[in-house]
Design a protein around this nucleic acid. Structure first.
Lengths: 102, 102
DNA sequence: CCTAAATATTGACATTGTCGATATTTAATG
DNA sequence: CATTAAATATCGACAATGTCAATATTTAGG
């Protein structure tokens, strides 16, 4: 089982955002840091599938006073998620090793 | 348009192998360096799709004497391929930057 | 209450990842 | 020289991932 590229980027955004890792924020982080522009549903279904695989888990965030709308669902990586993500990183790094761009 | 993870690994294998970048050799390089075990058809269709996108190009290799079988088809990256590959690398690197594994 | 804001969720489809089975070409071999 | 075996490419089908327009859910504010 190997992670897709958006799955990897999404897991990294989740990690970077820590307690603020909910749908819209993850989407913004993907655009801001990776330059990857995707819709909210794209992020969402990616998170759902990662959760089905046991790579992330989620809870409803405690709602802060004065904010409208539905409660935020906050995600974080599981140990299995970390393993899978790091394996992907290592594979890619080994493949890049020694490659020089002409 | 963004590269899938196998597409990235395959392009890197092509680069590493230079004049020997044909189906079976690419498959072995993916296993040897990245630890990614895939079948020959998987590599092949990935190459075909990359070629359709203009990220790699191919020629029939001059057959060396004493080798059976069909002529090898040898692949190499196009400039557009390099650009796409490096963009993917940069996105991922920026996303990993500052992330510490617990 | 009704409206608007903030967010999650559904449903459908396109692209990529995957491989078992098959075809093509040529050297060896009887 | 017909047949077999080796080396490689290619087809056809399906599973997983990537993608978003449209819709639903929840709550603050007028």
């Amino acid at each position: 089982m190997s992670l897709g590229d958006l799955q990897q980027l999404t897991m990294l955004a989740v990690t970077r955002l820590e307690a603020d890792a909910y749908g819209a924020a993850i989407r913004e982080e993907l655009l801001r840091v990776a330059g990857r522009r995707v819709s909210v549903p794209t992020v969402w279904v990616t998170l759902v599938r990662l959760e089905e695989h046991g790579f992330v888990e989620s809870t409803e965030a405690p709602r802060d006073k004065g904010r409208r709308g539905r409660a935020r669902r906050v995600f974080r990586l599981t140990p299995a998620g970390w393993n899978a993500l790091d394996e992907a990183r290592v594979s890619m790094a080994r493949m890049w090793d020694g490659v020089v761009q002409p």
